[in-house]
Design a protein around this nucleic acid. Structure first.
Length: 879
DNA sequence: CGATCCCGCCACATT
DNA sequence: AATGTGGCGGGATCG
């Protein structure tokens, strides 16, 4: 009751009104009046410093007696003061203080006193951590705000974060329901899983570099992945779920950010996350590079979140010292292991929700996790047929557009990750001279590369395809490899793939990137794991072609080893097999949509990830998995696994070296892009070797039209470089397309992929390998760019980051892109992309922004040089 | 001076 | 239109 009164009386305004300045000055003579209450007013609060104080306040609020005492102390001041009227307090506080020194401080309301963290503590003190299930505690924002003596806005900050962890949920306007920490572990678990999917690699990656190299990517993934797969993603849905549509809003970035932030901790091996990295990763859309301001804003938000999380006792502030110096960071001090299996409760049955309204997996804003994916895959298999689409969606539960958003998020994430990686790489590079060649490849637009949300939504899905795929998978038993199974097991297509390799997952299940060694190579220096990669890559190269084929033909692949050798044959077979796929080709729809999606996304992705997005449908994750497995396994599977596993950080090089040497031509090896088949397309899986030539991609675009094939692959012109694997059927048409040479290869099969890889993607590893010398030859289009030199910084970075993985990347300098755009523009999807890219760039202001550019440029140069070095190094010394 | 982050404007959403 | 929400970033404070 008091509260209300007081609140009204004094509450808000007073504080604000008061000019701070005066107060300070006055500080000396505090108190009294409130004329210019300013700081003085604050004073009252001051005392709260101690956490306990806050509690006391609360208590005091409860009991008048306490209050008086406290009052002296001034703890409660906010609320109370209103009532008490400031008078006395001021005086007392000083007196009261224990520490003499503090008086001043106490007096002035210092900012700390008003900190969000403190406020949050007060807030939390009001509610039991583990409320009885029976009692439902409702929270009135107005009430709380007045009680705590703050504006409502601040309460939102707190509640939003709490909501992200499901400690509270919104029940109605101005009303929240307090759940306490009962579900916290589950929530964290869910987040962890989701985080693994989304950020696992990155984090691992980083950490490796930075901290311990011990880690292995492969291992790491394996660990996490397994579990995560089955589970539904996060359901963060929380509240929103209720209104699936609701997502629309901006999506409460604070909430999402909070979840993402927590995820980073959970997937972090060290449990320490630096603010800057978190910000980079969390920045969506824009690539890091673009705005500095954006970054700043993100950091601010992170501080807000961190304050709340700190109050919850989940993290604590620490500093990490890196090469550059000491950086602010936070360490997770909350639970790491989540005993309760979340699964049980929710996992299998999505329906069960702990939280009342929120859960529904589908809804969750978080979609990221893509709850849908996993399920889809499976479902898809079931469906088998077209209907799938419908089903699938249902399954996904997302009726609406929301997905797109999700996808976007993913995209953004990916981008961010890429950026982060990039940066890391860059940094690393510095040290040694390791610039990653990748960096060269910039893909400007990539950032956008958003997911192809549309595709998913749009496409009906392909489940039919999936099934087919799945079948193979099922069959796949042939591949005894453990890894495979694991993958298969995991529902998520993505995860499965991952086992050994580092990969990037797209939310949309449609694309997967497998990075074999790229990163490693690049990073290698820095990274521990790199070595593996190298090996892998080498092998991968070999394997790749087959893999490509296999994807669908996994059956064939079954005899993995063979395929490798017989690439061609395999390819044929594949094609044969794929014939099925062709069907998918039929599907025209995709093309349409996909183009868009692709175009945009693709470009974006490409840039970021290098992926090409294809819009295949996301729906069929299984297919992907299968494909992936197959692809990799058949040829490489074992090897790869070995690599992955084997790779010991210590001596990765050996293997690699060999490989590299062997494959010198195709240094890149390992990366693959996976595209899940969409419904129609589903049958096709695309694997792109990172190496591929750009031309292929472009071709694809052109092709597409004609074919209307599902293959969406459209690499952005700039990006171009990706080779696409086309289903055989498609191939014919395609083959011609792109670059003559490449295209042919591409069109044919994967085998070509190998070719492609060999081909100089100028940017690709090859580039690295063969130092600049003649990267160009391979691709005309690209040549112009001469990426290395000109790469737009941004791109380069992004590429680097992303690319690190894939040598594939094409580095196109920004300039190039532009050029291409005009030229290529026209019809092909490519053209589209380019355009977008530009737009993209511009938007971010990157281009426009002088500052950004400058930065970029600087980087570029740097990169270039480093790259060169790198190339040399790589070429010379594989190690 | 960089790290923090309070404060509150203001846009968008909901009622 | 009013009110609820919450993005966002200026600029104050802290260290």
């Amino acid at each position: 009751e008091n509260i209300f009164d007081r609140s009204r009386m004094a509450p808000k305004t007073p504080i604000k009104n008061e000019p701070v300045d005066l107060s300070k000055q006055k500080g000396c003579t505090p108190e009294r009046n409130p004329i210019t209450p300013v700081k003085l007013i604050d004073r009252p609060q001051p005392d709260p410093w101690t956490p306990t104080a806050n509690l006391k306040m609360l208590v005091s609020a409860a009991s008048p007696d306490m209050r008086d005492r406290e009052k002296k102390k001034e703890l409660f001041r906010p609320i109370e003061n209103s009532k008490q009227s400031d008078t006395p307090d001021s005086l007392q506080y000083d007196v009261v203080d224990d520490s003499t020194v503090d008086e001043f401080e106490k007096q002035r309301p210092s900012r700390k006193q008003k900190s969000l963290g403190l406020l949050c503590q007060k807030f939390l003190a009001r509610y039991p951590s583990y409320p009885l299930s029976t009692e439902k505690t409702t929270i009135s924002l107005d009430e709380v705000a007045s009680i705590l003596g703050v504006e409502r806005r601040r309460i939102y900050d707190i509640v939003n974060v709490l909501e992200s962890l499901h400690l509270v949920s919104r029940v109605a306007k101005n009303q929240y329901c307090w759940h306490g920490r009962h579900n916290l572990s589950q929530t964290l678990k869910t987040l962890q899983e989701a985080g693994e999917l989304q950020y696992g690699e990155l984090m691992t990656f980083f950490q490796h570099k930075e901290q311990d190299l011990e880690y292995k990517f492969g291992e790491r993934k394996k660990e996490t992945i397994p579990d995560s797969q089955d589970r539904p993603l996060l359901d963060f849905s929380e509240p929103d779920c209720t209104s699936a549509s609701a997502n629309s809003r901006k999506d409460k970035s604070l909430r999402i950010m909070s979840q993402k932030f927590v995820m980073l901790f959970l997937v972090s091996k060290t449990k320490i996350v630096t603010l800057d990295i978190a910000a980079k990763i969390l920045i969506e859309e824009t690539q890091d590079t673009v705005d500095h301001s954006k970054f700043k804003t993100k950091v601010r938000r992170l501080y807000d979140i961190a304050n709340v999380l700190t109050s919850l006792g989940l993290i604590k502030k620490v500093h990490v010292t890196e090469e550059r110096g000491r950086k602010p960071a936070f360490k997770w001090i909350g639970p790491v292991e989540f005993p309760g299996k979340t699964d049980e409760p929710r996992g299998h049955s999505p329906t069960s929700d702990p939280l009342p309204g929120t859960q529904r997996g589908a809804c969750a804003p978080y979609q990221i996790c893509a709850t849908g994916k996993q399920r889809f895959t499976r479902h898809a298999s079931f469906n088998g047929a077209q209907p799938c689409e419908g089903t699938r969606r249902k399954v996904s539960s997302e009726p609406n557009s929301p997905r797109q958003e999700r996808q976007d998020e993913y995209c953004s994430k990916m981008i961010n990750l890429a950026a982060v990686c990039r940066q890391k790489i860059e940094e690393d590079t510095r040290n040694p001279s390791i610039t990653s060649p990748l960096s060269l490849l910039p893909v400007p637009g990539d950032s956008d590369f958003c997911v192809n949300p549309l595709p998913q939504a749009v496409f009906p899905v392909v489940q039919g395809d999936v099934p087919s795929l799945s079948l193979p998978n099922g069959i796949s038993p042939q591949a005894p490899h453990p890894s495979t199974p694991a993958a298969s097991k995991t529902e998520n297509g993505k995860p499965t793939l991952l086992p050994n390799q580092p990969f990037l997952c797209f939310p949309s299940s449609s694309l997967f990137m497998l990075c074999s060694g790229l990163q490693e190579n690049n990073l290698r220096d820095t990274l521990p794991a790199a070595e593996d990669v190298g090996k892998r890559s080498a092998e991968a190269q070999a394997a790749v072609p087959p893999a490509v084929c296999q994807k669908r033909s996994s059956h064939k692949c079954a005899s993995p080893s063979a395929p490798v050798d017989d690439e061609e044959p395999a390819a044929k077979k594949q094609t044969m097999e794929e014939s099925d796929v062709p069907l998918s080709l039929v599907v025209p729809k995709k093309p349409f949509e996909s183009p868009k999606a692709e175009s945009t996304p693709g470009s974006g992705y490409a840039s970021a990830v290098h992926l090409e997005a294809f819009d295949l449908d996301i729906a069929s994750p299984a297919a992907l998995e299968a494909a992936n497995k197959e692809s990799t396994k058949p040829l490489n599977s074992q090897e790869q696994e070995k690599w992955c596993q084997n790779k010991d950080p210590d001596e990765p090089s050996p293997g690699k070296e060999h490989i590299s040497k062997e494959n010198s031509n195709q240094p890149f090896p390992p990366q693959y892009l996976y595209v899940q088949p969409t419904a129609g397309l589903s049958s096709f899986n695309f694997l792109f070797s990172a190496n591929q030539a750009p031309g292929a991609v472009s071709l694809a675009a052109s092709q597409l039209p004609s074919l209307s094939v599902p293959c969406v692959v459209v690499p952005s012109a700039a990006l171009a470089s990706f080779p696409l694997v086309c289903s055989p059927a498609i191939t014919s048409p395609l083959s011609p397309v792109p670059d003559g040479s490449f295209s042919a290869a591409a069109s044919m099969n994967f085998s070509m992929s190998s070719l492609a890889s060999t081909t100089p993607v100028f940017i690709g590893t090859t580039a690295v390998v063969t130092p600049k010398v003649s990267p160009a030859p391979s691709v005309d289009p690209q040549q112009p760019s001469h990426p290395a030199l000109h790469l737009s910084p941004v791109l380069a970075r992004s590429c680097g980051a992303v690319k690190l993985d894939s040598p594939v990347c094409m580095g196109h300098p920004v300039t190039l892109l532009k050029l291409q755009q005009p030229s290529s523009t026209p019809l092909t999807p490519k053209s589209i992309r380019p355009a977008r890219h530009e737009a993209f760039f511009k938007t971010p202001g990157s281009l426009g922004d002088p500052v950004a550019w400058k930065k970029n440029e600087g980087n570029q140069t740097r990169n270039a040089s480093s790259v060169q070095r790198r190339l040399e190094i790589s070429s010379t010394s594989p190690d």
